[in-house]
């Protein structure tokens, strides 16, 4: 069931790409936890004297229009961006898994209701739906999480459902029934864990996507509000200065965003392997 340290180490040794992704992931986590402590400047402190100064030894990433240190802001923003993405993905994974397992295992009317609900969500352009939800519920971090979770829900429910449809035909599900397992236990201990490896790829890819989504909402002015450091807002604010030559304002938060998305996209395969006991030696 569990990912043993030995297995993780084995997988990392096998695949350098996964190792790179894993190191990237660790650095993101590190920045998210200790970002406030290691940021060289206060991310909110303005200083009009040094506004819009290009990257230098004092300010590696330069400063923005209010003279705030972009490096510090990009570091501190990690926690918020990652937090939103993790919370949103966890939420949609959790609810989507339950719906998907139920729909796949029971079929019938549950499957119909879940299927129709998912189709309804999918009928909207997803980002527009997220904009609508945040606009209707109000500009808060929680609402960004809810919106991101809702638009990701169909993916999880569908993938889990189709996996469950395959797994429930396996002999070990019948064997589980004969061993005296009830339906709930079969879903929780046999179906869900065996669908997990495939889900891991989706979770990882989805994390990158959720980060982009949250940043995108902030970029268009929904969600996180200035002056809170957040990659999307920083890119949005910096965008106006690109034409006048102050490229660093948008460039560095954009690169941070890219780094995070890239990391999660690479991580997928490795995560799948570490959740699959068949890959254990």
């Amino acid at each position: 069931m569990t990912i043993s340290i030995r297995q993780t180490r084995y997988i990392l040794q096998e695949n350098t790409l996964t190792l790179v992704a894993f190191l990237m992931f660790l650095s993101l986590i590190f920045l998210a936890i200790f970002g406030n402590a290691i940021a060289p400047y206060d991310p909110l402190e303005t200083n009009s004297a040094i506004a819009l100064s290009p990257p230098s030894l004092q300010h590696w990433f330069g400063t923005d229009q209010l003279g705030r240190d972009i490096l510090s802001r990009a570091i501190v923003a990690t926690r918020l961006d990652l937090g939103i993405a993790i919370a949103a993905v966890f939420l949609s994974f959790f609810i989507g898994s339950i719906l998907g397992v139920l729909a796949g295992y029971w079929g019938g009317w549950i499957d119909n209701i879940v299927g129709r609900a998912i189709d309804t969500i999918m009928a909207f352009p997803l980002f527009v739906l997220a904009m609508g939800i945040v606009a209707a519920l109000g500009n808060t971090v929680e609402n960004i999480i809810y919106a991101t979770a809702i638009i990701n829900l169909p993916l999880y429910a569908r993938v889990i459902r189709s996996e469950v449809l395959i797994i429930k035909k396996a002999g070990y599900i019948e064997a589980a029934k004969l061993s005296g397992n009830g339906d709930w236990r079969i879903m929780a201990r046999y179906l869900f864990p065996n669908a997990l490896p495939v889900m891991m790829v989706h979770i990882s890819l989805n994390m990158g996507w959720a980060i982009l989504n949250a940043a995108g909402l902030s970029f268009i002015g929904l969600g996180v509000r200035p002056p809170t450091p957040e990659w999307g807002i920083m890119v949005a604010e910096g965008a106006t200065y690109i034409i006048s030559g102050e490229w660093w304002l948008a460039m560095f938060p954009g690169l941070s965003l890219m780094f995070a998305v890239f990391c999660f996209n690479l991580l997928g395969d490795g995560l799948r392997d570490s959740f699959d006991p068949r890959k254990k030696t």
Partner: peptide, 10 residues
């Protein structure tokens, strides 16, 4: 029938 298919891989 199938000893492999009837054991939970986990």
């Amino acid at each position: 029938q199938d000893p492999h298919d009837s054991l939970n891989p986990r």
